[in-house]
């Protein structure tokens, strides 16, 4: 039973992290290859605070604040650089984060932070705490999709220049997407740190960023149910089947490539195609930023 509880906790945290990236990449169309940095910033913030005796919930608020603040800064970068340039810049942010953490003795350097105190909810209590937060994130994502802000995100993802032309304040919405997405990632990071009780620079590297992006893309970029299903599946599969755990990266790589090659809309588009609710060309429009490249 202990094992299942841990599994559900970890899965809820992944769902939350994936949904937070989905806000930025899925809803607002801003590709981020460095999301693990914000997840990591949250984890480090809350772990540093609780080890000095500050209550767990307060540390989560601080984690959201710090990660969101860093996200806002990167959001400003997204106002300057676009598309492929943004993808590489965010990737750079990820490497910069890990590179700085490694050299800071205050943050444990290469060794990381050990002995992160227990949040004090008990195993089952913590599982429910994480589940509820993941649920709130999902509900918030679904709600956001139906608000004015959600529609503006959609417009920006589809065509930034046109969105600007019809009077959408593109900069403000992009910053909002980055701030919200990274703040939620920060909370997820804090939850992760207090579940595994140990964090180090390697917990938040490029592979983690790619894994999060893989979940969003495989689920179907922008689709809340798709991302949730992908997060659950990709987190649980390696736990269930030992053989997959050994070839986890090969599986991620293969899945990422396979989905992009054969179904760029991810699971969401695949399901739609199988249910044949919509025609194939409508499915293509669902991909944010969809455009024919100039060549």
């Amino acid at each position: 039973m202990e094992y299942q509880i841990t599994l559900i906790t970890i899965v809820s945290i992944s769902v939350m992290a994936a949904l937070s990236l989905n806000l930025i990449t899925g809803f607002c169309g801003q590709i981020s290859l460095g999301h693990a940095a914000f997840y990591g910033a949250g984890a480090y913030t809350s772990a540093m605070l609780t080890t000095t005796g500050i209550p767990f919930t307060a540390s989560l608020v601080a984690a959201a604040g710090i990660a969101g603040f860093l996200g806002l800064i990167v959001g400003f970068a997204s106002l300057r650089v676009r598309h492929d340039f943004l993808a590489i810049t965010t990737m750079g942010v990820g490497f910069l984060f890990v590179g700085i953490i490694r050299q800071q003795d205050v943050l444990g350097g290469e060794m990381g932070i050990f002995g992160i105190p227990d949040p004090g909810f008990g195993k089952i209590g913590y599982m429910f705490f994480c589940l509820i937060l993941a649920g709130i994130t999902a509900a918030f994502s679904l709600y956001l999709k139906r608000t004015w802000m959600g529609y503006s995100f959609d417009a920006i993802a589809d065509d930034e220049d046109t969105a600007k032309m019809i009077g959408i304040d593109v900069s403000r919405y992009k910053l909002a997407a980055f701030a919200m997405g990274t703040a939620i990632a920060g909370i997820a990071g804090g939850l992760y740190a207090h579940e595994v009780k140990y964090i180090g620079p390697d917990s938040f590297g490029f592979i983690e960023s790619v894994t999060m992006l893989a979940i969003v893309v495989i689920g179907g970029i922008g689709s809340v149910p798709g991302v949730i299903v992908a997060a659950i599946a990709l987190t649980m599969l390696p736990q269930w089947l030992q053989i997959i755990a050994d070839y986890k990266l090969l599986l991620y790589g293969g899945l990422l490539f396979g989905f992009m090659r054969f179904s760029p809309g991810g699971l969401a588009a695949l399901t739609r195609k199988l249910m044949s609710v919509r025609t194939a060309n409508v499915e293509f429009e669902e991909v944010p930023g969809g455009r024919t490249p100039e060549r």
């Binding site: 590709i31 598309h83 492929d84 993808a87 592979i207 790619v210 992006l213 893989a214 893309v217 070839y247 990266l249 090969l250 991620y252 790589g253 293969g254 899945l255 990422l256 490539f257 396979g258 992009m260 090659r261 760029p264 991909v287 944010p288 930023g289 969809g290 455009r291 024919t292 490249p293 060549r295």
Partner: peptide
């Protein structure tokens, strides 16, 4: 090639990770 640019980028990352493995 006719898909949005991030499709090829992510496919390429996937391919690279698989190659390393």
């Amino acid at each position: 090639l006719d898909k949005p640019p991030f499709v090829a980028l992510i496919a390429s990352i996937g391919l690279f990770i698989a190659m390393e493995e």
